[in-house]
Write a protein that binds this DNA or RNA. Structure first.
Length: 273
DNA sequence: AGCCAGGGTCTGC
DNA sequence: GCAGACCATGGC
């Protein structure tokens, strides 16, 4: 990958396995919109992304190379060799999913943002999840510029009541959001443990939060802690397991089950029935 | 109109 | 330990 900084933009060339449209719209993250045939706009944390793809080059507008290196490079997991991982998949369904949705990467989100987002995701559909998160940021996040708002801090949310959160129209999830914010702001959830401790211990710690069960915990581990072996099982992945892998997951997924899961999830969700 | 959604909790066996 | 009711809301 070549990185150049020109006119307050960062331009990437020779990037392998990166489709930002797929990556940012495959159920990992909920704050990005395709704004034209070749550009995308959104916010992660408190950083605005304005990305255009031209002739295989990726242009990060209004971005310094320092911002790119410290934020977007880890965010898009550019330090990981997806080509090599995909090449190691010798399962026919997984190969098909990777071929059809080539360029999906696992994004590394802020842990609190992932936690809050996936609490909101429970028993919910993606269009509505996006709406709730948009209202969350507009009502309680700091304005960055234009219509872009930062994801609200856990401290800010922890100081609110369920009634305050009713503007979100998130229903029963409001109390879960508050508990997650309180446990994050008070450091009762220790990021060090979630990222580095034995994964079973990290799971248990996350599930002490009200409204966090196995699925949400797994999503936080995968998208908010960089644990690429975490394996979130929602209704779609459940279908995949029942229909394609009744005797268990193939060996080639070992260690990177979360990455495999992302391709399979998006593939299965885009097939009727 | 009714089923479903990137689920989890609580209760009752 | 496991099934089943229930949870708010709105997309389709």
């Amino acid at each position: 990958m070549k990185i150049k900084e020109i006119n307050n933009s960062v331009i990437l060339e020779d990037v392998k396995c990166f489709d930002p449209f797929l990556t940012l719209d495959c159920g990992q993250t909920f704050r990005f919109k395709k704004t034209s045939e070749n550009s995308i706009h959104g916010v992660a944390g408190n950083k605005v992304l304005d990305l255009t793809v031209e002739n295989g080059k990726f242009i990060f507008h209004n971005t310094t190379s320092e911002d790119f290196n410290s934020f977007w490079f880890p965010y898009f997991d550019f330090g990981r060799d997806y080509e090599n991982i995909i090449a190691s998949f010798d399962d026919k369904y997984l190969k098909k999913a990777c071929e059809q949705y080539y360029g999906i990467r696992i994004v590394k989100q802020d842990m609190w943002e992932a936690l809050c987002s996936f609490i909101i995701s429970q028993n919910n559909n993606i269009p509505r999840i996006k709406g709730i998160i948009e209202r969350l940021c507009e009502n309680f996040g700091e304005k960055i510029s234009g219509n872009d708002y930062a994801f609200p801090t856990p401290e800010k949310i922890a100081g609110l009541t369920e009634k305050d959160l009713s503007v979100l129209r998130a229903g029963f999830r409001n109390k879960y959001i508050l508990d997650a914010a309180e446990k994050t702001a008070s450091k009762k959830i220790n990021p060090e443990i979630i990222e580095n401790a034995d994964i079973e211990e990290a799971r248990r710690a996350l599930m002490e939060i009200k409204g966090v069960g196995p699925k949400v915990a797994e999503c936080v581990l995968l998208y908010g802690a960089g644990r690429v072996d975490a394996f979130p099982v929602d209704v779609w992945v459940k279908r995949i397991c029942a229909e394609l892998y009744p005797d268990g997951l193939p060996e080639c997924m070992k260690g990177v089950r979360g990455i495999a899961q992302q391709y399979l999830f998006h593939w299965r969700r885009n097939i009727d029935q």
